[in-house]
Simulated assay, not measured.
Amino acid sequence: MFRLTSARFTALLPQHAFDRLDWLRSAAGASIGIAAAATITMMLLGGDRTTLPWLVAPMGASAVLIFAVPASPLAQPWSVIGGNLFSAAIGLAFGLWAGSPALAASLAVGTAIAVMIFARCLHPPGGACALLCALGAAGADGWSWPYLWPIAANVLALSLAGFVFNNATGHKWPHRAPASDTAKAQADMREDIEAVLTEWDEVLDVDIDDLHALLQATNARAARRTA
Rank of each mutant, 00 (worst) to 15 (best):
126 G>W: 03
155 V>L: 04
103 L>I: 13
172 K>A: 13
191 E>R: 13
99 G>H: 07
112 A>D: 06
149 W>D: 01
116 M>T: 07
133 C>E: 06
128 A>G: 12
177 A>N: 12
130 A>M: 06
178 P>W: 06
142 G>P: 06
184 K>A: 15
142 G>E: 03
93 A>L: 15
156 L>I: 13
92 L>K: 08
98 A>V: 09
140 A>T: 14
136 G>A: 03
179 A>S: 14
95 G>P: 03
104 A>V: 09
181 D>R: 14
97 W>S: 11
114 A>H: 02
175 H>C: 07
177 A>V: 04
138 A>H: 08
143 W>R: 08
102 A>Q: 08
159 S>I: 07
189 M>E: 01
112 A>T: 06
152 A>D: 06
94 F>V: 06
93 A>K: 00
196 V>Q: 13
156 L>H: 02
90 I>H: 04
184 K>Q: 13
163 F>T: 06
106 S>G: 15
87 S>L: 03
192 D>V: 14
155 V>D: 03
145 W>N: 00
158 L>I: 14
149 W>L: 15
147 Y>D: 03
127 G>A: 10
127 G>R: 06
139 G>M: 09
99 G>Q: 05
194 E>M: 13
95 G>A: 02
120 R>I: 07
161 A>S: 12
127 G>F: 05
104 A>M: 10
89 A>S: 15
144 S>P: 00
102 A>P: 00
110 G>K: 08
107 L>P: 00
151 I>C: 01
126 G>L: 04
111 T>K: 01
185 A>Y: 04
183 A>N: 13
161 A>T: 11
97 W>Y: 05
125 P>Q: 04
155 V>Y: 07
108 A>K: 02
125 P>F: 04
139 G>S: 06
99 G>F: 02
186 Q>D: 13
151 I>Q: 00
171 H>R: 15
159 S>T: 15
192 D>S: 12
150 P>H: 10
98 A>Q: 04
178 P>F: 11
176 R>M: 08
102 A>C: 00
99 G>M: 05
167 N>A: 12
190 R>C: 11
155 V>G: 01
128 A>L: 09
117 I>F: 08
140 A>I: 08
165 F>H: 01
179 A>V: 14
188 D>A: 12
123 H>Q: 07
171 H>S: 11
91 G>K: 07
193 I>F: 04
89 A>N: 04
149 W>V: 14
122 L>N: 01
197 L>M: 15
141 D>M: 14
161 A>L: 13
105 A>M: 10
141 D>L: 14
105 A>W: 02
120 R>E: 09
155 V>W: 10
126 G>A: 06
169 T>N: 09
138 A>T: 07
112 A>C: 04
143 W>N: 08
133 C>S: 10
146 P>H: 08
190 R>M: 15
120 R>P: 02
172 K>I: 01
116 M>K: 09
195 A>I: 04
168 A>S: 11
136 G>T: 06
194 E>P: 00
121 C>I: 05
191 E>F: 10
133 C>P: 02
173 W>L: 01
120 R>V: 01
182 T>Q: 13
88 A>K: 04
123 H>W: 05
90 I>V: 15
88 A>G: 14
138 A>V: 09
158 L>V: 11
111 T>I: 01
127 G>D: 08
126 G>T: 07
163 F>D: 00
143 W>S: 01
95 G>R: 04
194 E>T: 14
196 V>K: 08
188 D>F: 08
161 A>Y: 07
100 S>A: 10
145 W>Y: 12
154 N>L: 11
181 D>E: 13
176 R>V: 15
138 A>N: 06
87 S>R: 05
